[in-house]
């Protein structure tokens, strides 16, 4: 009875894992395919399309552009979220709590709605088709993520730690520098990585806000998909997969991933 349950559980988890991995494996496989045809499994293994990708300035420019847009969007988003989350925790401020819910609300709207919103917004502002539009729009839409993660981080700090520091002569800034900042570093890094990866992969907002002139990697991948298949786009896809995996492995190495994802009880090794 117990054995059967275990076997069923393993089968179920195996199928879920296969479902999650299958499309990725296919793309990775095709990217190593010698042939121009989109077929899987690859018949002849080759790095031809990787060479093509990295020697085509169109693709490498898109990659560089995407990386810088995402890095800046992550920086913007976390910079805005940090004081809000700190004020909610430290001062139990109502204004900050209200700001946290306003900031998180855009993330809960369908992507096509926020995309339209920002496309209209930048049109009215008269600042169309610029990369910084994408940075700020992503920063605003993804704000819910750093707010949530940083709040978890602040809540994990024992308030007694601050009071203990004060009884030992620490002022407000000393306490922040010596107690709060070290405790928050993993959460801040986590928020940065999370927003970075989501921004890197976002298509619709980037397209509707600046798609005509700013070719981020997802926009170029989609364009290349629509205008006829080209194996280099598989390489673009593989780069995304590798970047995502690497970022989150890094995160798991820096911080306690189960805790960051909201686990309460500590987990033994």
């Amino acid at each position: 009875m117990i054995k059967l349950a275990t076997a069923l559980r393993r089968l179920f988890l195996g199928l879920v894992a296969l479902f999650i991995a299958a499309p990725l494996l296919v793309v990775i496989g095709v990217s190593f395919n010698e042939s121009r045809r989109m077929s899987f499994p690859p018949t002849v293994i080759s790095l031809k399309w990787y060479r093509a990708f990295f020697t085509d300035p169109d693709w490498t420019d898109s990659l560089k552009l995407s990386l810088s847009i995402s890095a800046l969007a992550a920086l913007v988003s976390v910079t805005v979220a940090l004081p809000i989350a700190y004020a909610v925790w430290r001062y139990r401020s109502r204004a900050a709590t209200a700001m946290a819910s306003v900031g998180s609300s855009l993330f809960l709207l369908p992507g096509v709605v926020t995309a339209l919103m920002f496309s209209a917004f930048w049109g009215v502002v008269g600042h169309v088709g610029r990369a910084e539009n994408v940075v700020l729009s992503h920063g605003a839409v993804l704000l819910g993520i750093p707010i949530a993660l940083l709040s978890v981080g602040f809540q994990a700090i024992d308030r007694n730690l601050i009071e203990a520091a004060r009884t030992m002569g620490a002022g407000e800034t000393d306490a922040f520098r010596m107690v709060i900042r070290p405790a928050m570093t993993p959460y801040i890094l986590c928020a940065l990585i999370y927003v970075f990866v989501l921004s890197l992969n976002e298509y619709l907002i980037a397209y509707m806000v600046a798609g005509f002139s700013v070719q981020t990697l997802p926009i170029r991948v989609f364009g290349s998909m629509r205008s006829g298949y080209e194996p280099t786009l598989c390489v673009g896809a593989v780069i995304f997969i590798v970047l995502g995996l690497a970022s989150f492995w890094l995160l798991a190495a820096i911080g306690d991933l189960p805790r960051l994802m909201g686990r309460h009880k500590p987990l033994e090794a």
Partner: peptide, 12 residues
């Protein structure tokens, strides 16, 4: 890690 990586993959 696997779930986070797939979650972040572009819809494209």
């Amino acid at each position: 890690v696997g779930l986070l990586s797939t979650l972040s993959l572009s819809e494209v």
